[in-house]
Design a protein around this nucleic acid. Structure first.
Length: 660
RNA sequence: GCUGCCUUAGCUCAGCCGGUAGAGCAACCGCCUUGUAAGCGGUAGGUCGUCAGUUCGAUUCUGACAGGCAGCUCCA
């Protein structure tokens, strides 16, 4: 007998008792909502016997849609139902794979091979078929098969792609088939007990995807969808999506006149408008001041250079595809730089260096151009011309860990100041089998060990990725998400033992010996483009006062208050505050609305009362509070908020921020 | 780069089946002189992304190209 405990209920069951029966006994109220069962953080089908867990006593948890693991099962089973419906609508379709993705255009998708294009017109038909499968309430059955039987079964069904998947599965893997009605799919599981447990579906989009994720392979059609237990949750999901879209930097960038692109200039080439440029300048000044405090020196290097430099750095011909094509001048090839490092290395090597100069921290807000694939471009997040918050730290091997840790601290300072908490860190190491990584194993082992040590000693949380390092060294990335849920690297830092060797960088140590420095590449604020793109979404366009393009907007009630307004604007500007006087050519209500839509931190309405008392009435955009101030008091307040980079959470009032 | 979809005024969008276009907002001009999210009226603005093709005739149909969107691939 096995003792099973669910919540505060427990009972004894024979080993062949299924979890369905256990739930009915111990948690009858959850019988209907139950999708699966979880024991020791592993999900199981409800149809499985308690003996699947080799223990005399087990503590189980009923999984419902409210649990992450329950959602996963719900969507995984949803993918099967989607496939089943697709097979009914297109009998000759071939199925590849249908995983849960949670994010992106759907919660799950199915990749299929089909001659005819599935377009949005077909969605309705497929959705109707899905609802039919749900209504038919097929029991979901789990079977284990031999490899040969499984191959024969899928061959007979014409599912050649599935046969390929089975053949690629590791030797010892158990082959499981889940069946529901006429449909069978190769799947690890687990799944919900019957198709009737699923609720409402909405197909979201269809896109192309290469088989096995390899661009040389054939392209399949990927059908994305979402599903929920009921209609209201579905509606809520799309409402939240609409909300997220309002934060989209591409939309806000236009509305707030921060940046623009023009067809005649080119894709991925950003025009920073005056308002956006203020944000760029503020960030840049902040970085410069911060770097100066942290012992960085600034340099400036050209945008173009002879090709030799990039041969030395191995960017040519290896990364030629991502560089703008060469220009011929004086019988030489010149390239536009895709990064600054080779120039900095060259500066370091420009004259003999002493150990006394190390660590030498060389910073530049350099403008780089990268020829990104047209399909990869996206607003400010992926562009072809960018300004990088770049610096290279040259130090001895003994200093490397401390320097790397200081860089992590710097990241933390920037992120904390900007209230960025929703990010994660990734340590990307090399894959020894991948030829893209240059340099010897011993060099890589050392670089990876130093990086890891620095991260461990910093006590930061991170995940490890065993590929995706830079070709010259391991990489520590800060990953952030855009409003629509796409992930980007916002900051990056690499420990590099390769380039110092390629550029033959050296310094004379205390003992008179020539030594090779370590190079740390770092860009905590990434590029202006991506970082500001992210900040626009992070702040939903409502920038904290120190970054706000316009900090104070003065609205005289009528022409009689213009003199005072003009004087006030001059005073504020004199105090270093970006103030704008909005003349009373429109109604006051209209001007207030405009100021709100521009998300100006302080709005000053001045009328008889203010002019008479020589005072200020200010409304704070973030809190909505309206308050009277003496002029000097207000200026001191604003200056202090700017100086401290104060961030106030926006309090959303009901009925505001309506679209135009 | 690949797959699919989209492109009408500065912005958001209308425009059955092919007969050369319309609204709201913004802009400009008047009137209004205003107290915390849209005062009223008028004017102007489009070779319907570009170039070909089909047609008596194309914003509408077809193709190529450009730009955008969602994925995939890539992301030094």
């Amino acid at each position: 007998m096995v003792v099973v405990k669910i919540g505060d209920q427990s009972g004894e069951f024979s080993p062949e008792t299924t979890f369905t029966e256990v739930v009915e006994k111990l948690a009858p109220s959850q019988r209907k909502a139950a999708l699966g069962i979880e024991v020791e953080k592993v999900s199981y089908d409800l149809s499985r016997p308690v003996s699947v867990i080799a223990a005399n006593s087990i503590t189980a948890k009923v999984l419902t849609f409210a649990d992450e693991a329950g959602k996963e099962m719900f969507w995984h089973s949803s993918a099967h139902v989607l496939a089943q419906a697709l097979k009914r609508v297109y009998p000759h379709i071939q199925l590849e794979d249908g995983p849960v993705v949670k994010n992106g255009p759907g919660f799950f998708f199915y990749d299929v091979l089909l001659e005819e294009k599935i377009n949005e017109e077909a969605f309705e038909k497929i959705e109707a078929e899905i609802q039919k499968v749900i209504r038919e309430n097929h029991a979901v059955k789990r079977n284990v098969m031999t490899r040969a039987d499984a191959v024969a079964k899928f061959k007979a069904m014409g599912e050649d792609l599935k046969v390929g998947i089975i053949q690629r599965l590791p030797e010892n893997d158990e082959i499981r088939i889940y069946e529901q009605g006429e449909f069978a799919d190769l799947c690890r599981g687990p799944h919900v007990p019957s198709t009737g447990k699923l609720g409402v579906f909405k197909l979201t989009t269809v896109a192309g995807a290469y088989i096995g994720g390899k661009s040389e392979n054939q392209m399949l059609q990927r059908i994305y969808a979402v599903s929920f237990p009921d209609k209201n949750l579905l509606k809520e999901h799309f409402r939240l999506l609409e909300e997220a879209k309002k934060r989209d930097h591409r939309k806000l960038g236009g509305e707030l006149e921060l940046f623009a692109t023009e067809d005649k200039i080119g894709p991925g080439l950003i025009l920073w408008l005056p308002r956006g440029n203020i944000i760029k300048d503020e960030l840049e000044n902040w970085a410069k001041v911060t770097e100066a405090k942290n012992g960085y020196q600034r340099v400036t290097t050209p945008v173009v250079t002879k090709e030799d430099l990039f041969y030395q750095s191995e960017h040519l011909p290896h990364y030629m595809d991502h560089m703008f094509p060469p220009m011929q001048m004086d019988n030489q090839n010149y390239y536009i730089k895709p990064m600054n490092c080779p120039f900095h290395h060259t500066i370091f090597g420009h004259r003999p260096r002493s150990y006394r100069e190390l660590p030498l921290r060389m910073a530049e807000y350099g403008t780089c151009h990268r020829f990104e694939d047209s399909g990869a471009l996206m607003g400010l997040m992926r562009v072809r011309a960018m300004q990088m918050n770049d610096a290279h730290i040259y130090c001895s091997e003994e200093q490397a860990v401390e320097e790397f840790k200081a860089v992590i601290k710097l990241h933390e300072y920037y992120y904390k100041t900007l209230h960025i908490t929703d990010y994660h860190m990734v340590l990307s190491l090399r894959n020894p089998n991948n030829k893209k990584y240059h340099g010897e194993d011993a060099m890589w082992d050392k670089a990876e060990a130093l990086t890891r040590q620095a991260m461990e000693e910093s006590g930061v949380q991170y995940i490890v990725e065993n590929d995706g390092a830079a070709f010259y060294g391991p990489k520590m990335d800060f990953q952030i998400k855009s409003s629509i849920g796409r992930e980007f690297t916002s900051s990056t830092c690499q420990l590099d033992l390769f380039m110092p060797m390629k550029f033959d960088l050296k310094y004379i140590d205390k003992d008179g010996q020539m030594k090779r420095p370590v190079c740390i590449h770092r860009s905590p604020l990434g590029t202006h483009e991506r970082f500001i793109g992210f900040l626009i979404e992070h702040f939903a366009g409502a920038f904290p006062i120190w970054l706000a393009p316009e900090q104070v907007r003065i609205l005289p009630v009528n022409a009689a208050h213009m003199d005072y307004g003009t004087k006030l604007a001059a005073e504020l500007r004199e105090a270093g505050i970006r103030a704008h006087l909005e003349e009373p050519e429109e109604s006051l209500g209209k001007r207030i609305r405009t100021a709100e839509k521009l998300k100006v931190p302080y709005m000053l309405v001045i009328g008889d009362k203010e002019v008479g008392g020589g005072i200020i009435n200010a409304r704070n955009y973030f809190t909505g509070e309206q308050k009277e101030f003496a002029r000097a008091e207000f200026m001191a307040l604003v200056q202090e908020e700017i100086r401290t980079k104060k961030i106030t959470e926006r309090i959303e009032k009901s009925g505001d921020s309506k679209g135009a």
